[in-house]
C-alpha cells in the first residue's frame, strides 16, 4: 500500500465555508469537557488531597509505632543509675 496520497492542485474550501466552521462557544464547551474528563480520569497519586491524606496517615502510623517502641526500649536498656539503686535495695 502506498504511504502517501498525492493531490495536485486540490481546491481549497471557500472563505465562507471556513467561516461557517468557526464557533468559539463550541471551543469553550469542548475545553470544559476535556477538563472534566481529565479531572475524572486523573490518577490518584496526582490528587493533592489524596496524597496529603496518605502523608498524614503515614505520619500518624510512625507516631503510633514510636510511641509503642519507647516503653520496650526502656525495659531492655536500663541505665547505670537504676542498676546501682537495684543492687543497693538488695
Amino acid at each position: 500500500m502506498a504511504k502517501y496520497k498525492f493531490k495536485k492542485e486540490s481546491k481549497e474550501p471557500s472563505d465562507e465555508f471556513i467561516r461557517s466552521k468557526m464557533d468559539f462557544n463550541k471551543i469553550l464547551k469542548n475545553q470544559q469537557v476535556i477538563s472534566n474528563y481529565k479531572q475524572a480520569t486523573k490518577p490518584l497519586y496526582k490528587n493533592r488531597f489524596f496524597m496529603g491524606f496518605m502523608i498524614l496517615l503515614g505520619v500518624i502510623c510512625l507516631v503510633i509505632i514510636f510511641e509503642e517502641r519507647d516503653p520496650q526500649e526502656a525495659t531492655v536498656k536500663p541505665n547505670k543509675d537504676s542498676i546501682v539503686v537495684d543492687t543497693l535495695k538488695k
Binding site: 504511504k3 502517501y4 496520497k5 495536485k8
Partner: peptide, 9 residues
C-alpha cells in the same frame, strides 16, 4: 489511511 500530501504544479 494514506497520508494526503497537497501541492501545486
Amino acid at each position: 489511511k494514506e497520508r494526503v500530501v497537497s501541492f501545486s504544479s
